[in-house]
């Protein structure tokens, strides 16, 4: 079954074509990668899929349902989680509170439950905290649960963003350059984490990544973009050697 299907998608900002007539599909339970030089439209594609941008034309289907034009919060509630290229945590809140944000769609206490601290509200709160702690432990951050997110070291902040995203219990997780700024040891741990997310949590993963070794190492499916168009799609071994991909990354003379 195809989990994510993108059909003839276009995005234009005034005269600038960011995404041009793009179609591809990612099967359920896959680790896939979007690659391409800077400005190829990868992050714009993430923003389109998660509802932050509205496409100029085309359609996005998730788990068989059309999600084109839904607002970001509605897309998230349907099981699509994401991280951001420049890490967007709630900086003054604790690591645990950050992860608790993802439990929001699976809880329901409102103003009155809060004012009267109903037994249902207290049960729900305890459950949500437990669930958030589990997500923190999954990425190895159980010991920093009470520290404020802004004070965590860079590598931990990347992990915390992933913990927050998996706590949403999505079907698909979009990671925008998760390895950026990590050292080799952290990158190796990240590759393991991505595999564990797919294997143990049964969450499909799509990553935007510039580190081709990581791409080749973890992904089973690669979509290569250049100037908003798909230039290659398939298993990493084929796509990374594809002449158009080599050309896009190195420039024509290097190939010529």
């Amino acid at each position: 079954m195809m989990l994510l299907e993108v059909e003839r998608l276009s995005l234009r900002f005034g005269g600038l074509e960011v995404i041009r007539d793009l179609s591809f599909a990612v099967p359920a339970g896959t680790i896939a990668s979007f690659i391409g030089p800077n400005g190829a439209g990868k992050t714009s594609l993430f923003n389109l899929i998660t509802g932050f941008y509205r496409p100029t034309a085309g359609e996005i289907r998730f788990a068989g349902e059309r999600i084109t034009g839904l607002p970001p919060s509605a897309v998230a509630r349907r099981g699509l989680a994401r991280t951001f290229q420049n890490i967007r945590l709630f900086k003054t809140l604790s690591a645990l509170e950050n992860v608790l944000s993802a439990l929001h769609p699976r809880t329901r206490s409102g103003v009155f439950a809060a004012l009267f601290r109903t037994p249902g509200m207290r049960r729900e709160e305890a459950w949500a905290r437990e669930e958030a702690r589990r997500a923190l432990a999954f990425v190895g951050l159980q010991d920093v649960a009470d520290r404020s997110a802004g004070t965590l070291p860079y590598g931990h902040r990347r992990l915390l963003e992933i913990a927050r995203a998996i706590a949403l219990r999505p079907k698909l997780l979009l990671l925008d350059e998760p390895a950026a700024g990590l050292n080799p040891a952290e990158k190796a741990a990240l590759a393991d984490l991505i595999r564990r997310i797919r294997d143990e949590l049964e969450i499909g993963v799509i990553l935007i990544e510039h580190d081709m070794r990581l791409v080749a190492n973890v992904s089973e499916h690669v979509v290569a973009l250049s100037y908003g168009e798909k230039i290659a799609e398939g298993p990493p071994a084929d796509v990374l050697r594809h002449p158009k991909v080599v050309e896009a990354y190195l420039g024509e003379e290097a190939v010529g």
Partner: peptide, 17 residues
């Protein structure tokens, strides 16, 4: 508080700002 700190991140977690 999530919305105050980062509205987009809150929306990405399924919270309707």
């Amino acid at each position: 508080k999530y919305i105050r700190e980062d509205e987009d991140a809150a929306a990405a977690m399924g919270i309707d700002p």
